[in-house]
Amino acid sequence: MSTADTPQTWDEFMEGVWRQNPVFVMVLGMCPTLAVTVSAINAISMGLATLFVLVCSCGLVSLMRRFTPKEVRIAVYIVIIATFVTAVDYAIQAISLALYEALGAFIQLIVVNCIILGRAEAHAAKNAPMPAMINAAGMGVGFTIGLLALGVVREILGAGTLFGVALFGAGFQPWVIMVLPPGGFFVLGAWLLLFSWWARRRPLKEAAQNV
């Protein structure tokens, strides 16, 4: 790849991480976002699993894009995605059973995560493998950041720990609500509020400077 391409590639990558962040901007994939972000470890594992599936399946979809008839494209995407999800499923079982139990059905449910199918249909099916995978990686990283943002807050308040390390000592009073489903909604809402406030603030400031 030439050096002239680099900024564009970087842009492509940052598209998913920031401007089109799947959690904060597109609000996609809410099912795992709300369900598994009880702790930072869970969140980051889920994010990485999704990232892997996203990059691999987008790469394969993009490779096959020339000879995939449009009548069967969704079937092809789903088979490809399901394959990599199965591989991830085995891999997580091999790494840690405790993690596997904590993530539960949500590993298998990556198959129906609309971020992945959306990327395959909207981007990978129309682009060469390299840009497709970079775009997918950006989305995956963005998703991981989103999950981590929720997981960190919920773990700190809900258990007083971060990545399993106690932050406040023995006497910490856990906020039980944070590890229950309502806590997921509250924290997600708070992040969305913060994110949209920040995203709107910047153009306003720029406009103010121009005046």
Partner: peptide, 24 residues
């Protein structure tokens, strides 16, 4: 074309799954 593509995809995916299963 449909049969060709689906067959190819199934073959590749089958390989990947068997590989992952054996490996882990």
């Amino acid at each position: 074309a449909m049969i060709r593509t689906l067959g190819l995809v199934s073959a590749i995916c089958g390989l990947i799954i068997v590989g992952a299963y054996q490996g882990t």
